[in-house]
């Protein structure tokens, strides 16, 4: 079975660097890539009545936005790279969900980007990289 690399991806520059790195890695090893977009979510957060009623609608919108605005362009761009890429959109705690996805897909390594600057991406790739280092069950590459 060919190797599988899970890449944490949210469309940020750091995530793109991580993906570029993973694509080269995959090309040299003949591996495939699982592009994992995790939307931060806790089932224990509090929502108002209105948000409860609209939750299913919002979720559909979030998923389709992630697919069309973030994942599709990247998949299109990498179509000629010779690497087989599958994309996944999941809800949960970023680092934990990446570990779960790695387990479910039988991956052999993980790649995530790191954006040292804070900002929105830091929410995912600042702490995510750090947490992942602590909890990863596989070799894990952090791309600066």
């Amino acid at each position: 079975m060919p190797d599988r690399i899970v890449v944490g991806f949210d469309g940020s520059p750091a995530a793109r660097r991580a993906l570029d790195f993973a694509v080269k890695l995959a090309q040299s090893q003949g591996a495939s890539i699982v592009l994992a977009y995790v939307l931060e979510w806790s089932p224990y957060s509090f929502l108002s009545n209105e948000e409860l009623a609209e939750r299913h609608k919002r979720r559909k919108e979030e998923v389709s936005r992630a697919q069309t605005a973030v994942l599709d362009p990247v998949l299109e761009k990498l179509a000629g790279s010779g690497v087989s890429i599958e994309a996944q959109i999941r809800y949960g705690h970023s680092a934990e969900m990446l570990v779960t996805i790695a387990r479910d897909t039988g991956a052999t390594q993980m790649v995530v980007g790191r954006d040292g600057n804070g900002g929105l991406a830091a929410r995912m790739f600042g702490s995510t990289a750090g947490t992942l280092v602590q909890i990863a069950t596989l070799p894990c590459t952090i791309v600066p």
């Binding site: 089932p43 224990y44 509090f46 929502l47 009545n49 409860l52 998923v63 809800y91 949960g92």
Partner: peptide, 13 residues
Amino acid sequence: DAGEVSHFQALAT
């Protein structure tokens, strides 16, 4: 179903 309304959230609200 993660990302949908959980039992906990309905109860809490």
